[in-house]
Design a binder for these strands. Structure first.
Lengths: 113, 113
DNA sequence: CAGACAGTTAACCATTTAGTTTAATATTGT
DNA sequence: ACAATATTAAACTAAATGGTTAACTGTCTG
C-alpha cells in the first residue's frame, strides 16, 4: 500500500477549494467531462471573471488542469487531490462508522416509546 | 440505501472547517477520545482564545459537540458531518479511481525509457 | 470570601475571499 | 487590418478569517 505523504498546505488548499458551493458545482460539472471556461460559467449567476477566479482556485489546489487550445481553455478534473481529501477523511472512517452504528442501534431501541 | 439530503451550507461549513491545519489537528486529537479546551489548546502555539475560536468553528459545523461539566468543557468528535463530507467525495470516487488506475497503467508502461 | 482556574467575549488588526467593473491580451474569422 | 471571441488582469469593495490582548463570567478550593 502506498502511504502518501500529504502536507498540510495541500490539504488546506483542497478543503478550502471544496468549501465553496460554486466551486463544488464546477467540479460536479467537470465530473461529466471536460469543458471550457465560458461553458462552465454559463449556468452561474455571476460574471465570467468571477468564475475564472474560482477555476484558478481549483487549479491552484490541483483539482483541475487547464490546457489552452487556441483561444479557449479546456478544463478537466484531476483525480489525485480528490483522493487525497478522501484519504484524510478515511483515517476517521472507523471512528465515525462505529458512532453512526451506535446511533442507529440507539434509535432502533428507542422506537418503542 | 439512505440518500441524505445535504444542503450547500452544511458542506460549506464542513469543508471550511477542515481547511485549517489547526482545526484538522484538533479533530485528530479528538479522534483518540474526548478532551477539554485547555488540553486541546496545550500543544498549539497560539492563545487559548484562538483555539477556543477554532473549536467554535468546528462546533458550528457540527463536527464536535461540547458539554459543560462544572467549569470544564468536554469536547467530543461528532461522526455525522465527517460522513457527509465523505459522501460528497464518494460521488466522484468512481471517476477518480478510473483516472488514477489509468495513470498507474500509463506510468507502468513508461518505465522502459 | 478571596483567589485560582476554565473558558468565552469583546475589541482590534492584517490578510484573504468573493464578488464587481473595466481594461488588456491573445486568437480567430472576414 | 478589424472586429468578434475567450479569457485573464487590475483595481476596487465588503465581508470573513485567524490571530492578538484584555476584560469578563462562572466554578472550585483553601
Amino acid at each position: 500500500m502506498v502511504t502518501q505523504r500529504v502536507d498540510d498546505d495541500q490539504l488546506d488548499a483542497i478543503f478550502q477549494a471544496l468549501s465553496n458551493p460554486t466551486r463544488r458545482a464546477l467540479i460536479e460539472e467537470l465530473a461529466t467531462g471536460p469543458a471550457n471556461v465560458t461553458e462552465l460559467a454559463e449556468p452561474h449567476d455571476m460574471s465570467l471573471a468571477a468564475v475564472s477566479k474560482h477555476l484558478q482556485v481549483l487549479a491552484d489546489a490541483g483539482l483541475i488542469e487547464v490546457e489552452q487550445d487556441g483561444r479557449v481553455r479546456q478544463c478537466h478534473l484531476e483525480a489525485a487531490p480528490l483522493s487525497v481529501a478522501f484519504s484524510w477523511l478515511t483515517q476517521y472512517r472507523v471512528f465515525w462508522e462505529d458512532r453512526l452504528d451506535a446511533l442507529a442501534d440507539h434509535l432502533e431501541h428507542e422506537t418503542n416509546d
